[in-house]
């Protein structure tokens, strides 16, 4: 059974983030700094604009972000 939330997520995957975003290569270049800033509680959106939006739109980069975050948090 599909509910409104699932439909919203499916549309989100199709349409991606609305705001400007960096590409995969910039994401990879900045990922280490981004995660360290996150863990330090800094305003990552101000310091590395567009990366959060990219993580919302790119499942592969998001997985790698989540892994680095988890590894540094372990």
């Amino acid at each position: 059974m599909t509910d409104r939330s699932e439909i919203g997520q499916a549309l989100g995957r199709l349409l991606g983030p609305a705001e400007p975003e960096v590409g995969c290569d910039v994401c990879f270049d900045e990922l280490d700094r981004y995660v360290e800033l996150e863990l330090a509680g800094r305003d990552v959106d101000a310091e590395i604009p567009g990366l959060r939006a990219h993580l919302a739109g790119c499942p592969a980069c998001r997985e790698e972000h989540d892994s680095l975050y988890a590894l540094l948090s372990a």
Binding site: V26, F28, G50
Partner: peptide, 16 residues
């Protein structure tokens, strides 16, 4: 992805 080329930013590029 590191071995097969680079893309600096998706358009519209974020003003870094």
């Amino acid at each position: 992805i590191l071995e097969v080329g680079t893309v600096k930013a998706v358009e519209p590029a974020v003003p870094l």
